[in-house]
Design a protein around this nucleic acid. Structure first.
Lengths: 197, 197
DNA sequence: GCATATAGTAAGTATTCACTTAATATACAT
DNA sequence: ATGTATATTAAGTGAATACTTACTATATGC
């Protein structure tokens, strides 16, 4: 028998680096040469782990979603009540939104949405985020007597929009960090609970 | 005397086509060959009108902002009261948001924001949009007795976020057109006037 | 008509990029 | 030890791309 394959292990090892490079440069600007350089391997080794550059990008999209969800679960685990959960999430996102430049992956994926596989990956990602946020809003509202005039569905989309613009504000330094955090937190609160505190 | 230059006239003539191509493909995917093809001229003619591809892109960014502002002014001219103005704007944007794919220009510009000129162009564009929207919200609120708990500044950013996510929803067909329009209109109303009608 | 600068044609160039190939070295089961 | 598939190295390839150059045609003021 030959030596056992370590392809899976290496894929797992290099994926975070691949994610980071795509997050810095987006899809088109990222070159396979740069990916290899940052991973400290040769290009053809990357091509043994993934069929082509697009497969590397798709893997990055999935990993970004997965690690974000893991992070959320981590935060939610420590907050017993829905109210605490929402508040912790809003506070966390207000602060860390856009920290790793993942939005560059998402934005460049959207521009490549004529590619069926990329479209599917990014569509699934948005749907999952939306569902998760909407669930959180609903469980939170069930315990509240007064409900804002906006459906949980629309509210979840508005929150995603707010997160997106928050990324852009961070990137372009349109607000100072404190102002940006406050803007996100207050508006999110208002949307979710009809209350800006 | 030689024949008079028609460079300005031709720049003006070709710019809408250049805008459209960048709106379809974003910055990196747009090739100068494709631009020339769509303009029905040779590449070197484009290079006589603009210094390089980036200059073509910068011109497109400005033109997109300008034509949007013109459109808004057109709409606002017909609405005497601030209330009517806001309602007309919301209705218009709910319907036409993302129609021409301009968001691809904006998103790819953001990914190129390490280039100082592109960063400046896109930063200025966001600031101008924000100011304009904030003004509109404020004049509208002055006439209203009850005011929502969110500052006009934050509200304007939230509206931009809502518009952005509305573009994404359209692109990925995450909602049917009617649902998307309703989502935008109701949420925008709620943000601006604290009322979802 | 003539001088002159613009408009347009066609081909080319240097570089970059995704992806490949050929070769050698290495590790593991038997 | 040996066979066999994996790991790594290094060089290469064809296509695409931003931008250029050399040349011809044309319009305009005198």
């Amino acid at each position: 028998m030959p030596r056992p394959s370590q392809i899976d292990a290496q894929r797992k090892r290099l994926l975070p680096i691949v994610c980071q490079v795509f997050s810095e440069l987006g899809y088109r600007r990222t070159t396979t040469a740069e990916l290899a350089r940052r991973c400290h391997v040769r290009e053809n080794i990357l091509y043994r782990l993934w069929r082509d550059k697009r497969a590397m990008f798709l893997a990055a999209i999935d990993d970004i979603f997965q690690s974000r969800v893991d992070r959320w679960n981590q935060i939610l685990a420590k907050r017993p009540t829905p109210r605490q959960a929402v508040e912790a999430m809003v506070a966390y996102e207000a602060k860390h939104q856009g920290e790793f430049g993942f939005y560059r992956v998402v934005f460049t994926a959207l521009v490549e949405a004529d590619d069926p596989e990329i479209r599917k990956a990014i569509t699934t990602m948005y749907q999952r985020f939306h569902t998760r946020i909407q669930d959180m809003i609903e469980t939170n509202r069930e315990l509240d007597q007064k409900t804002p005039g906006i459906s949980s569905d629309a509210t979840a989309w508005a929150i995603i929009g707010l997160a997106t613009v928050s990324n852009i504000i961070r990137e372009l330094k349109l607000l100072r960090p404190r102002q940006r955090e406050e803007m996100f937190a207050r508006t999110a609160q208002y949307l979710i609970q009809g209350d800006s505190r």
